[in-house]
Amino acid sequence: MAAGGDHGSPDSYRSPLASRYASPEMCFVFSDRYKFRTWRQLWLWLAEAEQTLGLPITDEQIQEMKSNLENIDFKMAAEEEKRLRHDVMAHVHTFGHCCPKAAGIIHLGATSCYVGDNTDLIILRNALDLLLPKLARVISRLADFAKERASLPTLGFTHFQPAQLTTVGKRCCLWIQDLCMDLQNLKRVRDDLRFRGVKGTTGTQASFLQLFEGDDHKVEQLDKMVTEKAGFKRAFIITGQTYTRKVDIEVLSVLASLGASVHKICTDIRLLANLKEMEEPFEKQQIGSSAMPYKRNPMRSERCCSLARHLMTLVMDPLQTASVQWFERTLDDSANRRICLAEAFLTADTILNTLQNISEGLVVYPKVIERRIRQELPFMATENIIMAMVKAGGSRQDCHEKIRVLSQQAASVVKQEGGDNDLIERIQVDAYFSPIHSQLDHLLDPSSFTGRASQQVQRFLEEEVYPLLKPYESVMKVKAELCL
Rank of each mutant, 00 (worst) to 15 (best):
V364M: 14
Q458F: 01
Q428M: 09
N118M: 10
L255P: 03
L469E: 15
L258Y: 13
T330S: 11
T382R: 08
V168G: 05
L183W: 04
M389C: 00
S412T: 09
Y432W: 13
M316C: 08
Y114C: 05
L17S: 13
F327K: 02
V88D: 00
F95E: 12
T38D: 03
S306E: 14
K415L: 10
K477L: 13
W175L: 03
V88Q: 15
A410V: 08
V363R: 10
E328T: 14
Q285I: 13
A78W: 00
Q285T: 11
A342L: 03
C172T: 10
Q63L: 05
A77V: 06
E370G: 13
T313F: 03
E343A: 14
C304L: 10
G104P: 10
P467E: 09
I237Y: 15
V247P: 02
L482D: 09
K218S: 13
I123E: 01
K479S: 02
R404K: 12
S261L: 09
P10N: 09
P100A: 05
N353G: 07
I176W: 03
D248P: 00
Q41H: 09
I106F: 05
E279F: 04
R137D: 07
P366R: 07
V198W: 03
A411P: 09
I176E: 05
R33Q: 11
A47L: 05
A344E: 06
E228T: 07
L307K: 05
E302R: 15
S301Q: 13
K264F: 13
K479Q: 15
S438V: 14
V226T: 13
A453R: 02
D349S: 10
D349M: 03
A90H: 04
E473T: 07
A256K: 09
N118A: 13
D144E: 08
D332V: 05
S395R: 10
K233Q: 14
D117H: 04
D349Q: 01
F212T: 01
T158Q: 01
G288N: 02
S289P: 06
I72R: 07
P100C: 08
N126L: 00
L444S: 01
L406R: 03
D117I: 12
T166S: 00
N297L: 14
D332S: 13
H93M: 05
A344H: 07
H97V: 13
D332E: 08
P281N: 10
R141N: 10
P471N: 08
A77K: 05
N421R: 13
L183S: 02
L55F: 08
R372M: 04
R188N: 11
A235W: 07
L55K: 10
T242Y: 02
F195H: 03
D144Y: 10
R137L: 13
A150Q: 15
K218V: 00
E417I: 09
S334R: 06
Y114S: 01
K367G: 10
M316K: 09
L69I: 07
V429R: 10
A480T: 01
E283V: 04
G96I: 15
A102C: 12
C98F: 08
E462G: 09
L130M: 10
P24Q: 14
A335Y: 12
L377K: 10
D248H: 15
E462W: 12
E148T: 04
G394A: 13
V198K: 14
T330G: 02
D178V: 11
S474N: 13
L314R: 12
N185W: 03
R329A: 08
E464N: 11
G4E: 14
K246F: 04
L469Q: 01
K229S: 13
H400D: 00
V414A: 15
I385N: 02
D6F: 00
S434I: 15
Y466N: 02
L152K: 07
V368A: 02
C172K: 02
N384P: 09
I237T: 07
Y466Q: 12
A103G: 05
A127G: 10
A3L: 11
I436N: 12
P16I: 15
K391P: 02
C266I: 09
E401L: 05
H263K: 10
P10E: 14
Q63A: 01
E464G: 07
C99Y: 01
D398S: 11
S290Q: 09
Q397D: 01
S112N: 01
V189R: 12
G200H: 03
Y365T: 09
L17D: 12
K233Y: 08
P435A: 03
F236C: 02
K75C: 11
E425M: 14
L42T: 13
A453G: 11
S140M: 05
C483D: 14
A335W: 07
I351A: 10
M312A: 14
S323T: 13
L69A: 05
K470C: 09
K199T: 04
P435V: 06
K147N: 00
F212N: 04
K101T: 12
Q205S: 08
I369A: 12
Y21V: 15
I122M: 02
Y114A: 01
T239G: 06
A453T: 08
E250Y: 07
V478Y: 09
K199M: 06
T119Q: 02
S253P: 10
A102S: 07
D11L: 07
E463R: 09
K470D: 11
L55C: 11
A22I: 11
A256T: 13
L84A: 04
A78Y: 07
R300S: 00
H400R: 09
V168F: 06
K246A: 14
R40S: 04
M292H: 13
L46T: 11
R404I: 06
A2P: 12
N71R: 06
D430E: 15
I139H: 04
A90M: 11
L44G: 12
Q61W: 06
V88T: 10
L55G: 05
L209E: 06
Q416M: 07
E80V: 12
L69R: 02
S23R: 09
R83V: 08
K477G: 08
I62C: 07
T58K: 08
Q375F: 13
A143N: 02
G231I: 12
D73I: 05
A143S: 10
T58V: 03
K284T: 06
L132V: 08
A49I: 10
V92H: 00
I249F: 13
S151N: 14
L193I: 12
E25W: 05
V226R: 06
V115T: 12
T227C: 05
A235N: 08
P162W: 15
V414E: 00
I139L: 08
A342S: 04
F236A: 02
T313R: 06
L314M: 08
R85P: 07
V405F: 15
H93V: 04
E79H: 04
S31M: 00
L135G: 14
A291I: 13
D248S: 03
A410I: 00
L341W: 05
E70K: 15
P133L: 09
D215C: 06
R337S: 04
A392D: 14
A230S: 14
S253E: 10
S261V: 05
F345Q: 05
E79R: 15
Y13Q: 10
K35G: 05
D87F: 05
R459M: 15
